[in-house]
């Protein structure tokens, strides 16, 4: 069975979703990610969805779950590169993904994670707006 590759970069895990995922594939990504966070003690997770053409409520829920699960494991999740059309559709669908930090692209996402890791482990809710 095919799987979405997870790259380990320092303290972070990096995932680029490039295929139109069916539901089982999304579920296995969720499991793989959480087990790898635990295994490597990762502090940050970056998920790039710049090549995803749609995010429906299932994928949206999976992303929210990953963010929540990694928070429990003391890792911060950043979602990067969401396309405008996808963002408009998700909002219309009623999924604002309030608990997820976002960034325009991978570069900024890595910056955000770095800032989080420099700050230390205490959780803070700045709503995506870094100083």
């Amino acid at each position: 069975m095919d799987r979405i590759p997870i790259l380990k970069v320092g303290d972070c895990l990096l995932v680029t979703i490039q295929v139109d995922m069916h539901d089982e594939l999304a579920m296995s990504l969720q499991e793989d990610l959480t087990s790898q966070i635990a295994r490597y003690g990762s502090r940050g997770v970056l998920i790039d969805i710049s090549s995803l053409e749609i995010v429906d409520s299932f994928i949206g829920r999976m992303l929210a779950n990953i963010a929540a699960m990694s928070r429990v494991l003391d890792a911060q999740t950043v979602l990067t590169g969401m396309q405008p059309a996808v963002a408009i559709t998700l909002v219309e669908l009623g999924m604002a993904l309030p608990g997820i930090k976002t960034a325009l692209n991978v570069e900024r996402g890595m910056q955000l994670l770095q800032e989080y890791m420099d700050e230390g482990p205490e959780p803070e809710e700045t709503d995506g707006s870094e100083a």
Binding site: I88, E92, L93
Partner: peptide
Amino acid sequence: VDQTKFVTATSELAR
């Protein structure tokens, strides 16, 4: 945007 909305609705209903 209309394509994306339509495809997303399709995905929800097909599921």
